Simulated scan of single mutants.
Amino acid sequence: MRSGLTLLLALAGGVAVANLYYSQPLLGPISAALGISPAAAGLAMTVTQAGYGLGMALVVPLGDRFENRRLIVCAFSVVAVALLCAGLAQNAATFLAAALVIGLGASVAQVIVPFASHLATPEERGRTVGNVLAGLIMGMMAARPLSSLVADAYGWRAIFLLSAGLVALMALGLSILAPRRQPPPGFRYRTLLRSMRELFRANPVLRRRAVVQFFLFGAFTLFWTAIPLLLLSPAYGLSQRGVALFALIAVTGAVAAPITGWAADRGWSVAGALIALSASALSFVLSFFGEAGTFVSLACLVAASVLIDCGVAASLVISQRMIFTLGSDARSRLNGLFYTIFYSGGAVGSAVGAWAYVVGGWSLVSGIGLAMTLVAGALHLLEPKGR
């Protein structure tokens, strides 16, 4: 794996995943423009996450059947068209339909990760996966401040139109620069989907890591769905630019991914997983102090945002590295199963986040988030020793 190729795949994954999060800090303006009620504002995120989860089950397994570069480029082309439709939408139905397709097509990011894993040697697999995942996580985290800044200057539609052009450009770059990878023949699509059920039954490590990430990622999306609503409220009165600055600070949490990949290659996965889960739980303990609207409470929220991002990034790298050791010929299907389950947690967190904030305020959001991280930690501790 040349460093330039790793960078290209990391960038491609980040560009794809970023599309899932552009609407997160813009739920207020989007719902107001399209006639969605405040309590249902999280629906835009939920539909996108649901599309991503659906893509995990239906699109990602194709990485074990079809030539990977062609599959990735085709998916990027579909996403570019869907982004254009979202940016031009005049009603909620059109926007939500486009959001579903955006999520469905963006799932190809999880073809990119096993693609990179195939190209790496076993000795450098953890580091390579960590670096590519760092690109995905950077895209996920940078999407929020970028969309806030663009919306503050040009309105909420601009970020979707801008991203449509960026995704189309990335599709062109991948078609020219990415290598081909043709999986072994022999699987029909129907057989491929049926085989996922057996893979799920035969791999307890996959099931356990997916459920842990389900609760951890649910807490993550819960936090990031509700936090813009708090920062824009009278308690803080921040503008979209202020929300962007807040989210930009949290991007530093992405550095945990390559560091964790390096540590996992040296056999420190168990300690890394415990630290990641502890950081995630601590983030919600700190967030309880964030509702007061003071400088100290804002500092607590900033620290919480960095910790939750670090915790999720580190735990994801460790989980995914474990899964990629389960079978080289089934990595796309294993990855698809893993992301289908854990991104379902993200869809739940997105739906609950806006509702919890409207019904019970930030304290309810923090309580639910803390409970989800504690459940993830308990499930991790209950795993059989030595696995």
Rank of each mutant, 00 (worst) to 15 (best):
Leu193Cys: 09
Leu193Met: 12
Ala210Arg: 02
Arg194Gly: 05
Ala210Leu: 07
Ala210Met: 07
Ala202Tyr: 04
Glu198Tyr: 14
Leu199Ser: 11
Leu216Gln: 02
Gln213Tyr: 12
Tyr189Arg: 03
Ala210Val: 07
Arg209Met: 07
Gln213Lys: 13
Leu199Gln: 08
Arg188Val: 02
Ala219Met: 09
Ser195Val: 10
Phe200Val: 09
Phe214Lys: 02
Val205Gln: 15
Gly218Tyr: 06
Glu198Phe: 15
Glu198Asp: 13
Arg188Tyr: 01
Gly218Pro: 02
Pro185Val: 01
Arg197Thr: 00
Phe187Asp: 08
Leu199Phe: 10
Phe187Glu: 11
Met196His: 00
Phe217Glu: 02
Pro183Gln: 01
Gly186Cys: 06
Arg190Glu: 15
Pro185Thr: 07
Glu198Pro: 01
Val211His: 09
Gly218His: 05
Val212Asn: 02
Thr191Ser: 14
Arg201Glu: 07
Arg190Asn: 12
Arg197Trp: 08
Arg208Ala: 02
Phe200Thr: 09
Pro204Thr: 13
Phe187Ile: 11
Phe217His: 10
Leu206Cys: 13
Ser195Asp: 08
Asn203Phe: 08
Pro185Cys: 04
Arg190Val: 15
Phe200Trp: 15
Asn203Gln: 13
Leu199Trp: 03
Arg209Asn: 05
Arg194Ile: 11
Pro185Ser: 11
Val212Lys: 00
Arg208Tyr: 03
Asn203Thr: 12
Pro204Ser: 12
Leu193Phe: 07
Thr191Arg: 14
Arg208Gly: 02
Ala202Gln: 07
Arg194Val: 09
Pro184Gly: 05
Pro204Met: 10
Gln213Val: 10
Arg194Ala: 12
Arg194His: 03
Ser195Leu: 14
Leu192Cys: 08
Phe200Ala: 09
Gly218Trp: 05
Leu206Asp: 12
Leu192His: 04
Leu192Thr: 04
Phe215Val: 07
Phe187Ser: 12
Ser195Phe: 04
Leu216Cys: 03
Phe200Arg: 06
Pro183Cys: 01
Pro183Phe: 00
Phe217Ala: 07
Val211Arg: 07
Arg190Gly: 13
Leu193Arg: 07
Gly186Asp: 04
Arg207His: 10
Leu193Trp: 09
Arg209Ser: 06
Pro183Ala: 01
Arg209Gly: 04
Arg209Cys: 04
Tyr189Lys: 00
Asn203Asp: 13
Phe214Asp: 09
Leu216Arg: 00
Met196Asn: 00
Pro185Leu: 09
Arg190Leu: 15
Arg207Phe: 08
Pro184Ala: 12
Arg207Gln: 15
Arg190His: 14
Arg207Gly: 11
Tyr189Glu: 01
Ala202Val: 08
Leu199Ala: 12
Pro185His: 11
Leu199Gly: 14
Phe187Tyr: 15
Leu193Ala: 10
Ala219Tyr: 04
Arg208Asp: 02
Val205Arg: 15
Leu193Tyr: 13
Ser195Gln: 10
Gly218Phe: 05
Leu199Cys: 11
Phe215Pro: 13
Phe187Val: 11
Leu199Glu: 03
